[in-house]
Amino acid sequence: MEKNISLERLTLFEGVILGELRFVGRRCSFYEDLPSKAVLVAYSGSRFSDLGLVKDMDLGWAKFFYARLPGDWGGLYDEYLYERDLPVFCGFALNGMAVEFRTARTGREILVVSEKAWHGQREEVKSFLLEAGYAIPEEKLGEMDFTLTLGGDPEFEAYLDGEIVPAVDIPIFRRGGYDSPIGLDADWCAVELRPAPAYSEEEYAENFLALVERVREEGILLSVQGDRFALGGHIHIGSPNPFVARVLREGAKSFVKALDDFVGRVLLPTSGKARGEYKCLGAYEIKNYGWEYKTPPSSFYADLEALRIVYKLVRNLVETLLRERELSYEILANGRVKPEEYHRFLTPEETEYFLGFPERWARGEIPPFVPMAAVSAAG
């Protein structure tokens, strides 16, 4: 049976594509999920707070409030803005009917436009969006560089002195918390590593192993068994280009359907007993950089060659769908992708190695611990 997956056409504004478009009805104080080059259309009376301003501003069509320091903050105001990555005022545009901000730490650009200008000065707004880089002509999308960023936040069981220990009980993970490269998952029980994003599967593996080495120096092994705590091998896919990132976000369901067929159905049976409701296809979460594919368990991190191949497969598959806008492949009677279809994204040897991973796992041929070894650069 042939299966076809395609990306839908993006919503346009006056024939141009925006990096991100949102409408603000009343209050806005959370900016963490906004991608760079986001355009916020403010309805009359909208209020924006927690901003890097010298003083509050009332522009008539919207009000903007500077970030108040909490009572226990002992540092400088600019340090507070940087710590929270809040939007800092850059200037006015469109004769005062728009305001530009840039986040203090990550440098994400945000444009707030009045609803009146958005609907009443469409050509003027369109010209400014194109000139300032908030939009591109639709025909330019196909000429974009579709290079992806590869990331992840895999979860592991901490193995210390011969037993599994809740991660929160171990200082290196407790100190790291929920944001550091080495830290905890949301339930405090599993270890969560957050390697720096990379542009190749080899670079990602190197970033991951650098964190593993720091954990090993504490005398801790990382188990991928997942029989006590639920473990996921979540895969992050993004793009530094805001317009490509928007295609990733809006087409997330299509990308995930293809990943379920090529990756999820292969790896899901290697989930640990504790994974429960998380053991399912189609699990993903939209992010400002793109999305996070949450179906795979973390089992493949026990085999560094499998790790490299999984990320190569995901990267090549997503890049192909981005470029060609559609993907067709053969599905066998058992619901799995025909092995020859993988050869579009992997070598035959890599295909055999990847598809054989679940059997090697079931036979106990793969020790359920993250190894410390060189990653193959082949392929």
Rank of each mutant, 00 (worst) to 15 (best):
E8P: 00
R9Q: 15
I17V: 15
E20S: 13
R26Q: 11
S29V: 01
A38Y: 09
V39W: 05
V39T: 14
V41C: 03
V41M: 01
F48Q: 00
S49L: 02
L51M: 13
G60R: 09
F64R: 00
Y66A: 12
L69R: 10
G71V: 09
G74S: 14
G75Y: 07
L76I: 00
Y77H: 10
E79H: 02
Y80N: 03
D85A: 03
P87N: 03
C90G: 00
M97F: 05
E100C: 13
F101D: 08
R102G: 00
T103M: 08
R105Q: 10
R108Q: 04
L111E: 04
L111Q: 05
A117G: 01
Q121M: 15
E124P: 01
A132N: 06
I136P: 04
I136D: 06
L148Y: 03
T149V: 07
L150Q: 06
D153W: 01
D153S: 10
P154T: 10
E157A: 13
A158L: 09
Y159H: 14
Y159K: 03
Y159G: 03
G162S: 07
P166F: 09
I170S: 04
F173W: 09
R174H: 13
G183N: 04
G183L: 09
D185H: 07
W188T: 13
W188H: 15
E192T: 10
Y199L: 09
E202S: 05
N207T: 02
N207Q: 02
L209C: 06
V212P: 02
V215Y: 05
R216L: 11
I220G: 06
I220C: 05
G226F: 04
A230M: 11
H234F: 00
H236R: 12
V244M: 12
V247Y: 08
D260K: 09
V263G: 01
R265F: 01
R275G: 00
G282V: 08
A283R: 14
E285A: 13
K287Q: 15
N288H: 14
P296D: 11
A302K: 11
L307N: 03
R315F: 00
T320P: 00
L322W: 06
R323D: 07
Y329Q: 13
E330C: 11
A333R: 15
K338G: 05
P339K: 07
Y342T: 11
E349L: 11
E359G: 02
R360M: 04
R360P: 02
A362P: 00
P367A: 12
V375K: 05
S376V: 02
G379W: 04
